[in-house]
């Protein structure tokens, strides 16, 4: 086999050692190219995932506790939360439907979603419709300036109130 030289083969017949080197180089180049392609794909994902968002901030202040009289449930639609005040206790419940992200409205029995008919009770537990999870409760603190601060990045157990 080694001695056979085809007419179009310009390699010297004794260059079997070069074939090994060529194959190694070809293999290394292929790995390099494939690796570069993979890196490019990963950097695409990194590029498209924004590091800054320009929409609604996740941590914001909503006003003094006195703005929410005891016994009220006030929906703040721009921030998509519902502020619940019971006596001296305050909580913030999400009004974004856990089904497909529509805004749920306040109903007689709790919350109701207009998009696909999910229903929740006063505490955000699912009572009907396709919603898979209860409405989350967000962390509420009292800021040094006396305003209520809501942090939509951290959820708390349902039923956790802030005493004011």
């Amino acid at each position: 086999m080694a001695g056979v030289v085809r007419s179009h083969d310009r390699r010297p017949a004794s260059a079997d050692d070069k074939v090994g080197r060529r194959r190694l180089l070809a293999w290394l180049s292929s790995v390099g190219l494939a690796g570069s392609a993979l890196l490019a794909a990963v950097s695409d994902v990194i590029f498209f995932k924004p590091r800054v968002t320009y929409g609604q901030p996740a941590i914001f202040q909503i006003g003094k506790p006195d703005d929410f009289p005891p016994g009220t449930r006030i929906a703040r639609e721009a921030e998509r939360i519902c502020i619940v005040r019971e006596g001296n206790r305050v909580a913030a419940i999400s009004t974004t439907c856990t089904h497909l992200g529509c805004s749920v409205g306040i109903s007689d029995t709790g919350f109701a979603c207009p998009c696909h008919g999910s229903r929740y009770d006063q505490d955000g537990n699912v009572t009907g419709g396709p919603a898979p999870k209860p409405l989350p409760w967000f962390k509420v603190t009292l800021a040094p300036n006396g305003e209520i601060e809501v942090d939509k990045n951290s959820t708390v157990d349902p039923g956790s109130y802030l005493n004011v």
Binding site: V45, F48, K49, T53, Y54, G55, A58
Partner: peptide, 16 residues
Amino acid sequence: KQMQFVLLGDTSVGQE
């Protein structure tokens, strides 16, 4: 969730 975030460029539908 990651896919949704990358598609929207934010947590909800807006300018991004």
